[in-house]
Design a protein around this nucleic acid. Structure first.
Length: 430
RNA sequence: GCCGGGAUACCCUAGCCUGGUAGGGGGCUGGCUUGCUAAGCCCGUGUCUCGAUAGGGACUCGGGGGUUCAAAUCCCCCUCCCGGCGCCA
């Protein structure tokens, strides 16, 4: 959410930035917001004046009573004021609600380095690492590989839970945990504090993190409770400091979260319907930073560098794209995607999403900082990035590490996490 | 789930019964004074808003309603914490 103070003080700058989103509706909403705010401030002053007069009369009544004198005239005078205040404040609240409604819908201000584009075809590749893996044979996709090795059961998962669910089996279960624990160690080595967060959260916490439209499309609700299943550890890590004032010298606060993620994937019908690439449930090691506003650009580069080094350590070829205006969500000011090479699809596919949310989440969640106790407070900046979403990494490992006979090698660094297992072999034929 | 006790500013605490400017201590900040392993005194300490400035005003006692000229205080609802009972992998 944009800070109403910033909007009030720099309306022209904010309006010009919103114009880059190529959505005229945003601009008319913005203009309405300015009008509501002006009216709100007028009413605020009015109610303030009324309260002042009430307080004054009330004090006089107290004084008269203390002296044992008759205060009935003053009480009569004061009796009319509360209704007037109520009326004015009713108008104030109406304006405030309209303002909040608009503020919750307006997207973050875009960073200047975000390229213009209408959709994901406008994303700009800024670097790539490794060459797309080539094979002397026709490589299989992860589904064929996993079914042949009996590592995934999709049919029974559909029976038990429906489409986009899966059973991992046998060594693939161990490989999944190997990735999680390796990812966790990788982050701890870099000084990130690990968290295993609550897997359910209150609505208010999620509202502090996401665009409202995400509720319907991605987030599962628990019936009869004010609880929602975690869509990413990002939300729970942000929630750690809701309504807090952080010490300036404690920042940057670098956290990592390990958790399952639950997503509805509404609106993704027909896309990636097979296998475990796009599913309702997956595990993820997530990076999250709270930092000073002036440090967030640098911090963004650090997070994407961590993700890149993780994929490099697994020798998985990838490229990094700078996500363009048309493909960027409401929350991020700038976003990098790391796309890993999938030989089975002969495509780079999104494996990591790394966002600088600047003060957008901090305003919504009310996370501020100050250097010294009596200093004024300011909103922090927040950033988040996947380190590894393990099911997508499993897809990448299976496809990039396959052999002609259908075996899958274990990436070197993961072997110790697999109790020494080096290769997943096809069952022997009789 | 049931019964009881709590939540006051950055921290601790008084005030609640009996409604009338939220008091004290610590910390921090700025200043003054003394002069040496430091001490004393004074201003300030959160949020919003009006104002060019100086400065003014409002709000803030876990959250939300209500009663009242006036609510930390009285009434209702909710959240969280502590203790006991129950249930429990």
């Amino acid at each position: 959410m944009l800070d109403i103070k910033v909007v009030r003080e720099n309306p022209t700058t904010v309006r010009e930035n919103l114009a880059k989103r190529n959505n005229p509706e945003l601009l008319s909403m913005f203009d309405e917001l300015i009008g509501y705010d002006r009216e709100w401030r007028r009413l605020f002053t009015e109610s303030n004046t009324l309260r002042e007069s009430r307080n004054r009369v009330t004090e006089e009544i107290a004084k008269l009573k203390k002296q044992g004198r008759d205060a009935s005239a003053k009480i009569e005078e004061a009796a009319e004021i509360p209704q007037k205040i109520k009326n004015v404040e009713l108008g104030m609240n109406r304006n405030r609600e309209k303002m909040d409604h608009i503020l919750m819908k307006l997207p973050n201000l875009l960073d200047d380095s975000v390229p213009f584009g209408l959709d994901d075809s406008g994303n700009v590749t800024i670097r790539s690492w490794g060459e797309p893996t080539r094979f002397a044979f026709k490589p299989k996709d992860h589904i064929d590989l996993a079914l042949a090795l009996d590592l995934i059961d999709m049919e029974r998962a559909a029976k038990v839970a429906g489409a986009r669910f899966y059973y991992l089996k046998k060594d693939l279960v161990r490989l999944n945990f190997a990735l999680i624990i390796y990812g966790l160690d990788f982050m701890v080595d870099r000084g990130f504090v690990p968290f295993q967060p609550p897997y359910m959260m209150k609505k208010k916490v999620i509202e502090g993190a996401v665009a409202l439209s995400d509720f319907e499309d991605t987030i599962y609700k628990i019936e009869e409770e004010d609880l929602f299943l975690l869509a990413t550890a990002e939300h729970a890590l942000l929630g750690l400091h809701t309504d807090e004032i952080l010490e300036g010298k404690s920042m940057p606060l670098r956290y990592c979260g390990v958790s399952p993620c639950f997503r509805k994937e509404a609106g993704a019908h027909g896309r990636d319907t097979k296998g475990i690439f796009r599913v309702h449930q997956f595990e993820k090691v997530e990076q999250f930073t709270f930092c000073r506003p002036e440090d967030s650009t640098k911090e963004h580069e650090l997070l994407i560098k961590n993700a890149e080094e993780f994929f490099q350590s697994l020798k998985l070829p990838y490229r990094v794209v700078n996500v363009c205006t048309g493909d960027l969500g409401a929350v991020a000011a700038k976003k990098y995607d790391l796309e890993v090479w999938l030989p089975g699809q002969e495509k780079y596919r999104e494996a990591v999403s790394c966002s600088n949310c600047t003060s957008y989440q901090a305003v919504r969640s009310n996370v501020r900082y100050r250097d010294r106790l009596n200093d004024p407070t300011a909103y922090v900046h927040t950033l988040n990035s996947t380190l590894v979403a393990t099911e997508r990494a499993l897809v990448a490992i299976m496809e990039n590490y396959q052999g002609e006979d259908g075996h899958i090698e274990i990436p070197h660094l993961l072997i110790p996490y697999m109790a020494g297992l080096e290769i997943i072999k096809p069952p022997k034929r009789a």
